[in-house]
Simulated scan of single mutants.
Amino acid sequence: MVQIGKMLKVDKMTRGSKYFIVALGHQEGRMKKNPAGKRGGIKDRLKAGSRDLTEALRRSEAEKTAILQGLRGLVNVRYLDPELRVVWDNTARTELGAGDRAKSKDYCYRVIRGRTTPCTFSCTPQESLKDGMMKEREARLEDGRVFVERSNPVKGNSGAVEGVVFITLNITKHKRAEQELTRQEAEVVRKSRQLAETNTALRVLLRQQEGDQRELEERIVANVNQLVLPYVRKLKGMKLNESQLSYLEVAETNLRNIVAPFLRQVVSNFPHMTTQEIQVAALVRDGKSNKDMAELMNISLNTVESHRHNLRKKLGLQNKKINLRSYLLSLSRAPKSQPFSVPE
Results as ranks from 00 to 15, higher is better:
5 G>Y: 11
11 D>H: 07
16 G>E: 09
17 S>V: 03
17 S>I: 06
22 V>H: 01
23 A>D: 02
23 A>S: 08
27 Q>Y: 07
30 R>M: 15
33 K>I: 13
33 K>S: 13
34 N>W: 07
34 N>H: 12
34 N>C: 09
43 K>A: 02
50 S>Q: 10
52 D>L: 13
53 L>I: 12
71 L>N: 10
83 E>A: 08
95 E>W: 11
95 E>V: 14
99 G>V: 10
122 S>I: 11
122 S>P: 09
125 P>H: 04
127 E>D: 11
132 G>L: 06
139 A>I: 09
141 L>V: 06
142 E>P: 06
145 R>T: 14
146 V>A: 12
147 F>A: 05
151 S>R: 03
159 G>S: 05
161 V>Q: 05
164 V>R: 00
171 I>F: 00
173 K>D: 14
176 R>C: 06
180 E>V: 06
182 T>E: 06
182 T>K: 08
182 T>N: 07
183 R>P: 01
185 E>S: 10
185 E>K: 15
186 A>R: 14
191 K>T: 15
196 A>K: 09
201 A>I: 02
206 L>R: 11
210 E>V: 04
213 Q>T: 11
215 E>P: 02
216 L>M: 08
216 L>P: 03
220 I>Y: 14
222 A>K: 09
222 A>P: 03
236 K>M: 15
241 N>R: 04
242 E>K: 00
246 S>T: 08
246 S>A: 14
251 A>F: 14
254 N>W: 05
254 N>C: 08
255 L>K: 03
255 L>G: 01
256 R>N: 11
258 I>Q: 06
259 V>M: 03
262 F>M: 07
268 S>I: 07
276 Q>T: 07
285 R>N: 05
287 G>E: 02
291 K>S: 00
291 K>P: 00
293 M>L: 00
297 M>E: 04
298 N>S: 14
307 H>F: 07
311 L>W: 01
312 R>I: 02
314 K>C: 10
315 L>G: 00
324 L>R: 01
331 L>Q: 05
340 F>E: 08
343 P>R: 07
344 E>C: 02
